[in-house]
Nucleic acid binder design. Structure first.
Lengths: 198, 198, 198, 198
DNA sequence: AATGAATGAGAATTCATTCAT
DNA sequence: TATGAATGAATTCTCATTCAT
């Protein structure tokens, strides 16, 4: 078993500090307009220091993305594996995703602005993105077994769920919609459930 | 009435040629990685010439966006004002948008990658984006009057329609879904209509 | 036949201007301490302009080297193919080489300082270096046929000629020896000829 | 008489360890591409520790050079002061120098690549370099007294000896000549002796 | 003494923009 | 109008050196 030395802990801490700063800067300026200097300053460090923890701007970017996506996936998996009917789970998934982005607006902006240009280095992120729809799909399949969901193309339906949720997130992120989260979830879930239930 | 001189016509023509080239290049490389040289070469012009028609790279970019959005809006308005029930119109709107992006993949990529970071200069584009949902909303309102659509928050529902459509477009743009367009439209419209009809 | 347009001529001219400046700077500071800014300034250009003519610092460096070596080789070949006995030719080769470096001190410094680290990109330069000794060797072989030169390992002897000449060049380059060129040539040729003649 | 405290001894030892590591690294990468980290790692120390023993990278470099040159000079002086005729001594000097560099290839590479650019800080190294030719010159003068060497400019001749030897060393260092050391010495000494003997 | 984290000056390279032809 | 050579600001990344522990 590898014991984490004090140094490891500090390293880890610095890294997460930098990533946090990076997330803020990237979300505000996008990948290209964000400079390492921006990130360093935002983290209260000198430029060179950032390079002690990350090999390149790309690496910081990817790490920031990966971190966020993984955190979201963890939460969604917990929802899907939790108790309740498929209906309950579906609702919870939507809630979770929205709440997550409500609290991580900057992270969402990053995802949003770069999904369009997933070059090779970004592939792992795309995979993680797909994982998300797969979680939803599994819940839908369970719903069909339960008889609560009508027989439909679960893959397509899963995307629909993800897209609708994302749409709301965009509106909230952009500040176009300020209503309570619960109202949004109600509306969208209602629409969806009518659309997919038996 | 201002008569368009021959010069104006030529100007207009050159501009649209450059924009067309720009759209291709921007969609392939994104705003930052696209160089003026790329665009000029793609338009068969010298770098300096581009600056005779546009003040800056930004301006080209915005013009390219505006152009595309306006073309889409024109088509969607035509749909909304055409004949048929709200149901027919809604279906047609979805079809139109998907077909449009199917034929203008590059343009979609541009929108997609930059909508997340609408700084002040981009505001006019956001407005155009909103227009789109307003068109949908009007159709939904008509549907309610017809009694075909249940009473619901039409603004939110309009966004839902737009988001679902966009989701499909993304999948197609990324090459994740290769099926015939009609199948996609059927699926999504079906889901939606079940969700919003009385 | 490719006709050189005026543009080609200008291009060629600029390139040679930059190379000339580069040679001066490189010889004074060495590859690493020379900055592109130095070279540009020395050529009376802006930094960016240099990059219109050369892809990288490396490329400038290699071009400067190649240029010089080729010029020297051309002169030496002319000597070797000129009239006279092997003895005459050998003397002339030495004279030529020394005179060449007397006039191209900076170039010599470059060669001198980098022969030690011929990485892959430098290989062509090494080849050119070898060509030089081969020219000498051919003259020596002719000398043996004439009966003027004793039978010896011509390859090794050629290197000896080259090394002795280079040694003198170093002394002159460093300013350690200020005497007339002719005296140096006399001394060294005398020594050599005694060493290799029958 | 200053007594060397134990501390002094340790200091001296560490310094020489670092210099040894430095020599290896410098010869492999050259002055600029060698990093203090490289040297420290190669010496099994932390970067900061190196600075306890040397003020700067420059200083390490110079010390490494000086060390090597002094070692060579010591050996050559021993040769010159040893028994035998001038002829014997001259041969031995050549042998010694070649053997020394055969065993210290890395050190030779350093000298080779930097002698071309002796700026002020390097001056002391140049002096050491000159000492070498002076040793040879003294032997030549003795040879003249013995009547074995013809009357000639001993300074120039000494440089010739040094240059020829260096030439061979280069070829061996570069791996262009793999034959036994003795053969090389024979050839060059033979040539030289014919050139300078009465 | 020893460490290695932090610093920031410095260098290569790119490219939007200008301007003389 | 059209051109494309010239410019130089801006950016990423490296590494010698310092300094708190």
């Amino acid at each position: 078993m590898t014991r984490r030395t004090k140094r490891d802990v500090v390293q880890e801490f610095r890294k997460s500090e930098i990533l946090s700063a990076a997330r803020t800067v990237f979300s505000r300026k996008g990948f290209h307009d964000a400079t390492i200097d921006d990130i360093a300053a935002s983290a209260g460090l000198a430029k060179g220091t950032v390079y002690l923890y990350f090999k390149s701007k790309q690496e910081i970017y990817l790490a920031a993305l990966r971190d966020g996506i993984e955190a979201l996936l963890r939460k969604m998996r917990a929802d899907a594996e939790g108790p309740g009917t498929a209906r309950d789970k579906l609702r919870r998934l939507i809630e979770t995703k929205m709440a997550f982005f409500d609290e991580n607006v900057d992270f969402f902006q990053i995802i949003q602005s770069e999904l369009g240009r997933l070059d090779t280095t970004m592939n792992e992120c795309r995979d993680l993105y797909f994982d998300q729809t797969r979680i939803i799909e599994d819940v839908l399949k369970a719903g069909i077994k339960e008889g609560a969901v009508r027989k439909l193309n679960t893959a397509k339906a899963a995307f629909a769920v993800a897209d609708l949720t994302k749409g709301i997130v965009i509106q909230r992120t952009m500040g176009w919609s300020k209503t309570r989260l619960k109202g949004e979830v109600d509306f969208i879930f209602n629409l969806l459930w009518k659309g997919i239930s038996t």
